[in-house]
Amino acid sequence: MKLQHALGGLEGLGPIQGPETKVFVQPWEKTIFAIHVAMMGLSKHLDLKDVPTAFDDEWTWADLRKGAEAMNPFDYFRYRYYEKWLGGISGFFVQQGYITAEELEEKTRQYLADPASIKTEGGDPKIDEQVLHYLETGDSPLRDAAITPAFAVGDKVVVRDIPPTDHTRLPGHLRGKTGVIDVVYDGVYQYFCSTGPDGLGEPMPIYSVKFEPSELWEELHEDGNTAFFADLFEVYLEAA
Protein backbone atom coordinates (compact mmCIF):
# COMPACT_ATOMS: atom_id res chain seq x y z
CA MET A 1 0.00 0.00 0.00
CA LYS A 2 1.12 3.53 -0.69
CA LEU A 3 0.35 5.87 2.16
CA GLN A 4 0.23 8.80 -0.28
CA HIS A 5 -2.83 7.18 -1.86
CA ALA A 6 -4.62 5.99 1.24
CA LEU A 7 -5.39 9.37 2.78
CA GLY A 8 -9.17 9.22 2.55
CA GLY A 9 -10.66 8.84 6.01
CA LEU A 10 -7.41 8.95 8.00
CA GLU A 11 -8.02 9.33 11.74
CA GLY A 12 -6.74 11.76 14.32
CA LEU A 13 -5.85 14.76 12.15
CA GLY A 14 -7.46 17.63 14.05
CA PRO A 15 -8.71 20.86 12.49
CA ILE A 16 -7.63 22.06 9.06
CA GLN A 17 -4.98 24.70 9.67
CA GLY A 18 -5.73 28.09 8.25
CA PRO A 19 -7.23 27.41 5.85
CA GLU A 20 -4.49 28.83 3.64
CA THR A 21 -6.30 30.29 0.63
CA LYS A 22 -3.15 31.28 -1.25
CA VAL A 23 -2.14 29.34 -4.36
CA PHE A 24 1.53 30.14 -3.76
CA VAL A 25 2.90 30.76 -0.25
CA GLN A 26 6.46 31.58 -1.38
CA PRO A 27 7.37 33.54 -4.53
CA TRP A 28 9.74 30.79 -5.75
CA GLU A 29 6.78 28.39 -5.99
CA LYS A 30 5.61 30.35 -9.03
CA THR A 31 8.93 29.52 -10.70
CA ILE A 32 8.71 25.75 -10.28
CA PHE A 33 5.01 25.77 -11.17
CA ALA A 34 5.75 27.58 -14.43
CA ILE A 35 8.63 25.23 -15.26
CA HIS A 36 6.28 22.25 -14.86
CA VAL A 37 3.62 23.87 -17.06
CA ALA A 38 6.28 24.61 -19.69
CA MET A 39 7.43 20.98 -19.62
CA MET A 40 3.85 19.79 -20.12
CA GLY A 41 3.43 22.23 -23.00
CA LEU A 42 6.72 21.14 -24.58
CA SER A 43 6.21 17.40 -24.02
CA LYS A 44 7.14 15.44 -27.10
CA HIS A 45 3.82 13.56 -27.22
CA LEU A 46 2.21 16.86 -28.32
CA ASP A 47 2.25 18.14 -31.90
CA LEU A 48 5.17 20.54 -31.51
CA LYS A 49 5.97 21.18 -35.19
CA ASP A 50 8.89 23.62 -35.25
CA VAL A 51 9.21 24.62 -31.63
CA PRO A 52 12.93 25.22 -31.08
CA THR A 53 13.23 23.87 -27.52
CA ALA A 54 15.99 21.63 -26.27
CA PHE A 55 13.36 19.68 -24.32
CA ASP A 56 13.17 16.22 -25.84
CA ASP A 57 11.14 14.12 -23.42
CA GLU A 58 7.58 13.26 -22.59
CA TRP A 59 6.38 15.07 -19.47
CA THR A 60 2.83 14.85 -18.17
CA TRP A 61 1.05 14.80 -14.82
CA ALA A 62 1.83 11.09 -14.74
CA ASP A 63 5.56 11.83 -14.52
CA LEU A 64 5.11 14.33 -11.72
CA ARG A 65 2.81 11.92 -9.87
CA LYS A 66 5.22 8.99 -10.30
CA GLY A 67 7.88 11.08 -8.57
CA ALA A 68 5.57 11.80 -5.64
CA GLU A 69 4.57 8.14 -5.39
CA ALA A 70 8.20 7.03 -5.42
CA MET A 71 8.98 9.19 -2.39
CA ASN A 72 9.37 7.81 1.08
CA PRO A 73 5.83 8.47 2.37
CA PHE A 74 7.11 10.22 5.47
CA ASP A 75 9.07 12.62 3.28
CA TYR A 76 5.98 13.07 1.11
CA PHE A 77 4.06 14.44 4.10
CA ARG A 78 7.00 16.39 5.40
CA TYR A 79 7.41 18.56 2.33
CA ARG A 80 5.03 21.21 1.10
CA TYR A 81 3.27 20.70 -2.25
CA TYR A 82 5.68 22.71 -4.41
CA GLU A 83 8.73 21.48 -2.51
CA LYS A 84 7.91 18.02 -3.87
CA TRP A 85 7.65 19.48 -7.36
CA LEU A 86 11.02 21.20 -6.96
CA GLY A 87 12.68 17.96 -5.90
CA GLY A 88 11.00 15.82 -8.58
CA ILE A 89 11.54 18.22 -11.47
CA SER A 90 15.14 19.14 -10.72
CA GLY A 91 15.87 15.42 -10.23
CA PHE A 92 14.35 14.68 -13.64
CA PHE A 93 16.53 17.22 -15.44
CA VAL A 94 19.65 15.79 -13.79
CA GLN A 95 18.65 12.19 -14.46
CA GLN A 96 17.94 12.89 -18.13
CA GLY A 97 21.26 14.69 -18.56
CA TYR A 98 19.97 18.20 -19.36
CA ILE A 99 21.96 19.52 -16.41
CA THR A 100 24.40 17.98 -13.94
CA ALA A 101 23.91 17.84 -10.20
CA GLU A 102 27.14 19.84 -9.84
CA GLU A 103 25.89 22.61 -12.15
CA LEU A 104 22.70 22.87 -10.15
CA GLU A 105 24.57 23.00 -6.84
CA GLU A 106 26.99 25.59 -8.14
CA LYS A 107 24.24 27.82 -9.54
CA THR A 108 22.27 27.43 -6.29
CA ARG A 109 25.32 28.52 -4.26
CA GLN A 110 25.83 31.45 -6.60
CA TYR A 111 22.23 32.58 -6.12
CA LEU A 112 22.48 32.24 -2.35
CA ALA A 113 25.64 34.35 -2.34
CA ASP A 114 24.31 37.03 -4.69
CA PRO A 115 20.90 36.68 -6.37
CA ALA A 116 21.65 39.59 -8.71
CA SER A 117 24.61 37.68 -10.16
CA ILE A 118 22.23 35.30 -11.96
CA LYS A 119 21.28 36.94 -15.21
CA THR A 120 18.83 35.30 -17.55
CA GLU A 121 18.08 36.39 -21.07
CA GLY A 122 17.11 35.14 -24.47
CA GLY A 123 15.24 32.17 -25.83
CA ASP A 124 13.06 31.78 -28.88
CA PRO A 125 9.55 33.29 -28.43
CA LYS A 126 8.13 30.25 -30.26
CA ILE A 127 8.80 28.25 -27.08
CA ASP A 128 6.52 30.47 -25.01
CA GLU A 129 3.93 30.57 -27.78
CA GLN A 130 3.75 26.77 -27.63
CA VAL A 131 3.45 26.77 -23.82
CA LEU A 132 0.51 29.19 -24.08
CA HIS A 133 -0.96 27.15 -26.90
CA TYR A 134 -0.93 24.10 -24.61
CA LEU A 135 -2.66 26.04 -21.82
CA GLU A 136 -5.29 27.33 -24.24
CA THR A 137 -6.06 24.05 -25.97
CA GLY A 138 -5.22 21.46 -23.29
CA ASP A 139 -4.40 17.83 -23.86
CA SER A 140 -7.72 16.03 -23.98
CA PRO A 141 -7.62 12.36 -22.97
CA LEU A 142 -10.88 11.68 -24.86
CA ARG A 143 -10.33 9.15 -27.66
CA ASP A 144 -12.38 8.12 -30.63
CA ALA A 145 -12.78 4.38 -30.17
CA ALA A 146 -15.83 2.16 -30.36
CA ILE A 147 -15.72 0.58 -26.93
CA THR A 148 -18.93 -0.34 -25.17
CA PRO A 149 -18.91 0.37 -21.43
CA ALA A 150 -18.97 -2.83 -19.38
CA PHE A 151 -21.26 -1.26 -16.79
CA ALA A 152 -24.51 0.71 -16.88
CA VAL A 153 -26.05 3.21 -14.47
CA GLY A 154 -27.35 1.31 -11.43
CA ASP A 155 -24.93 -1.63 -11.73
CA LYS A 156 -23.28 -2.76 -8.51
CA VAL A 157 -19.50 -2.86 -8.75
CA VAL A 158 -16.57 -3.77 -6.52
CA VAL A 159 -13.34 -1.81 -6.69
CA ARG A 160 -10.43 -4.12 -7.42
CA ASP A 161 -7.45 -4.26 -5.11
CA ILE A 162 -4.54 -4.29 -7.54
CA PRO A 163 -1.04 -4.53 -6.05
CA PRO A 164 0.73 -1.18 -6.19
CA THR A 165 2.97 -0.44 -9.18
CA ASP A 166 5.04 2.70 -9.75
CA HIS A 167 1.85 4.62 -10.50
CA THR A 168 -1.89 4.25 -10.02
CA ARG A 169 -5.04 6.37 -10.09
CA LEU A 170 -6.87 4.11 -7.66
CA PRO A 171 -7.39 5.72 -4.24
CA GLY A 172 -6.53 3.40 -1.36
CA HIS A 173 -9.73 3.97 0.58
CA LEU A 174 -11.86 2.56 -2.26
CA ARG A 175 -10.06 -0.76 -2.69
CA GLY A 176 -12.39 -3.70 -2.13
CA LYS A 177 -15.41 -1.44 -1.58
CA THR A 178 -18.79 -1.91 -3.26
CA GLY A 179 -20.56 0.95 -4.99
CA VAL A 180 -23.15 1.69 -7.65
CA ILE A 181 -22.49 3.22 -11.08
CA ASP A 182 -23.96 6.72 -10.99
CA VAL A 183 -22.66 8.20 -14.25
CA VAL A 184 -21.24 6.54 -17.37
CA TYR A 185 -19.22 9.34 -18.95
CA ASP A 186 -19.55 9.77 -22.72
CA GLY A 187 -16.67 8.38 -24.72
CA VAL A 188 -13.48 6.63 -23.74
CA TYR A 189 -10.48 8.18 -22.04
CA GLN A 190 -6.80 7.42 -22.23
CA TYR A 191 -4.38 7.91 -19.37
CA PHE A 192 -1.05 9.60 -20.15
CA CYS A 193 0.95 6.40 -19.89
CA SER A 194 0.70 2.72 -19.21
CA THR A 195 0.66 1.83 -15.53
CA GLY A 196 1.59 -1.79 -16.30
CA PRO A 197 -0.26 -4.41 -14.25
CA ASP A 198 -2.25 -1.60 -12.64
CA GLY A 199 -4.12 -1.47 -15.95
CA LEU A 200 -4.17 2.08 -17.34
CA GLY A 201 -2.86 2.95 -20.78
CA GLU A 202 -5.41 2.02 -23.42
CA PRO A 203 -8.56 4.15 -23.87
CA MET A 204 -11.39 2.94 -21.64
CA PRO A 205 -14.72 4.09 -20.21
CA ILE A 206 -14.75 6.02 -16.96
CA TYR A 207 -17.51 6.19 -14.39
CA SER A 208 -18.69 8.11 -11.40
CA VAL A 209 -19.33 5.47 -8.75
CA LYS A 210 -21.51 6.21 -5.73
CA PHE A 211 -20.49 4.78 -2.36
CA GLU A 212 -22.39 4.78 0.91
CA PRO A 213 -20.29 6.30 3.72
CA SER A 214 -21.01 3.24 5.91
CA GLU A 215 -19.47 1.01 3.21
CA LEU A 216 -16.31 3.13 2.99
CA TRP A 217 -15.75 4.00 6.62
CA GLU A 218 -17.78 1.36 8.47
CA GLU A 219 -18.48 2.37 12.08
CA LEU A 220 -16.39 5.54 11.71
CA HIS A 221 -18.65 7.10 9.11
CA GLU A 222 -20.18 10.49 9.81
CA ASP A 223 -23.89 10.55 10.61
CA GLY A 224 -26.15 12.31 8.19
CA ASN A 225 -27.40 12.25 4.67
CA THR A 226 -24.13 12.00 2.73
CA ALA A 227 -22.95 10.30 -0.45
CA PHE A 228 -19.42 9.84 -1.79
CA PHE A 229 -18.80 9.80 -5.53
CA ALA A 230 -15.49 8.76 -7.08
CA ASP A 231 -14.46 8.99 -10.73
CA LEU A 232 -12.86 5.67 -11.65
CA PHE A 233 -11.37 4.05 -14.74
CA GLU A 234 -13.19 0.90 -15.87
CA VAL A 235 -10.17 -1.36 -15.31
CA TYR A 236 -10.42 -0.68 -11.58
CA LEU A 237 -13.94 -2.10 -11.36
CA GLU A 238 -15.54 -5.52 -11.49
CA ALA A 239 -19.15 -6.65 -11.25
CA ALA A 240 -20.34 -7.16 -7.68
Partner: peptide, 11 residues
Protein backbone atom coordinates in the same frame (compact mmCIF):
# COMPACT_ATOMS: atom_id res chain seq x y z
CA UNK B 1 14.30 26.36 -2.06
CA UNK B 2 14.25 29.74 -3.72
CA UNK B 3 17.89 29.50 -4.77
CA UNK B 4 17.38 26.01 -6.20
CA UNK B 5 14.28 27.03 -8.15
CA UNK B 6 16.01 30.11 -9.57
CA UNK B 7 19.17 28.10 -10.35
CA UNK B 8 17.11 25.48 -12.18
CA UNK B 9 15.29 28.16 -14.17
CA UNK B 10 18.57 29.86 -15.13
CA UNK B 11 20.12 26.56 -16.26
Amino acid sequence: NEARAKALEAL
